[in-house]
């Protein structure tokens, strides 16, 4: 009976933890959505040596790929060239 009670408590704690994890996950998803919506960019993380991604035009529903060799340009230039692409 003690074991059952212990299990019940453990389950409740786990449930609470899962709820919190889901809330955190939901919050992170909302934040990610805000990043993507402001920048219109979906990054492509397949190749860490290159800066790659997709610029999405929601009005025309068109997607444009971009790829920058991170070893040949500075982070400042990479950053601003991408911002230029999304801020015509």
């Amino acid at each position: 009976m003690d074991d059952l009670e212990g299990q019940r408590v453990a389950v409740l704690e786990k449930k609470k933890m899962l709820k919190k994890q889901k809330q955190d996950e939901f919050r992170a998803q909302r934040k990610l959505s805000m990043y993507a919506s402001v920048t219109n960019i979906i990054p492509n993380l397949d190749d860490q040596s290159r800066v790659m991604g997709y610029i999405v035009d929601r009005d025309t529903k068109a997607v444009q790929n971009f790829e920058i060799d991170a070893e040949k340009v500075t982070a400042y230039e990479t950053c601003n060239s991408i911002w230029k692409m999304i801020t015509p």
Binding site: V56, D57, R58, T60, K61, A62, V63, Q64, N65, F66, E67, I68, D69, E71, K72, V73, T74, E77, T78, S81, M85
Partner: peptide
């Protein structure tokens, strides 16, 4: 390295 290597690829239709 200062030279820019920004390459725009062909646009495609967005799902």
């Amino acid at each position: 390295k200062p030279d820019r290597q920004v390459k725009k690829l062909s646009p495609g239709k967005w799902n």
